Simulated scan of single mutants.
Amino acid sequence: MHNPSREKIKKVLDDSKTIAVVGLSPNPDRTSYMVSEAMQRAGYRIIPVNPRADNVLGEKSYATLADIPEPVDIVNVFRRSEFLPELARDFKAIDAPVFWTQLNVVDEAVFDDLTDAGYTVIMDRCIKVEHAILK
């Protein structure tokens, strides 16, 4: 697994406006909330994907990626690695350009499958940290 170069990651962040966050918790003490709140403050539209929440960060939450009624630029995953195969299938169905997993969330087969299918895949990287470094 080889993540894209920092230059490519910067281009992804520059070109993207909407981030669907799978596993976004409504609890402000959770990492998913803190990272998403920071990205929202940086100007990105955050779309929560959490079947147990109605709203997070002032945005309507959706049960699945397929339920989101608008295009998404980045799918940012805050779920454990064992959920990645299923999430990759859901991701392909909405055809967003970028699949991003947070720190310690890795599945080599999913990385290879999505990369081979032409998607940009970034795994085991914090989007907030990358944004802070590259902006």
Score class of each variant (00 low, 15 high):
23 G>A: 03
24 L>D: 09
25 S>W: 12
25 S>G: 01
26 P>V: 05
26 P>T: 07
30 R>D: 08
30 R>N: 10
30 R>S: 10
31 T>H: 14
33 Y>V: 07
36 S>N: 05
36 S>K: 08
37 E>V: 00
40 Q>P: 01
40 Q>F: 00
40 Q>I: 00
41 R>P: 00
41 R>S: 10
42 A>W: 02
44 Y>F: 15
45 R>F: 02
48 P>Y: 07
49 V>E: 09
52 R>H: 14
52 R>S: 13
53 A>V: 03
54 D>M: 08
54 D>C: 01
54 D>E: 15
54 D>W: 06
55 N>M: 10
55 N>R: 15
55 N>I: 02
56 V>F: 07
60 K>P: 02
62 Y>W: 06
62 Y>E: 03
64 T>S: 15
65 L>F: 07
66 A>S: 14
66 A>L: 12
68 I>F: 03
68 I>G: 04
69 P>T: 02
73 D>P: 04
73 D>A: 04
73 D>Q: 09
74 I>T: 02
76 N>V: 01
77 V>R: 07
79 R>G: 07
79 R>F: 11
79 R>C: 04
81 S>G: 05
81 S>R: 05
81 S>Y: 00
81 S>D: 01
82 E>Q: 13
83 F>V: 05
84 L>M: 07
84 L>V: 05
84 L>C: 11
84 L>G: 07
87 L>K: 08
87 L>D: 06
87 L>H: 09
87 L>N: 07
89 R>P: 00
89 R>H: 10
90 D>M: 03
92 K>L: 03
92 K>Y: 00
93 A>I: 00
93 A>W: 04
94 I>D: 05
96 A>W: 07
97 P>G: 06
99 F>D: 02
103 L>T: 03
104 N>H: 14
104 N>E: 14
105 V>I: 15
105 V>F: 12
108 E>P: 02
108 E>T: 08
108 E>H: 11
110 V>M: 05
110 V>A: 10
111 F>R: 03
116 D>A: 15
117 A>G: 07
118 G>Q: 06
118 G>F: 09
119 Y>F: 15
120 T>G: 03
122 I>F: 03
123 M>D: 12
123 M>S: 06
124 D>A: 11
126 C>P: 09
127 I>Q: 04
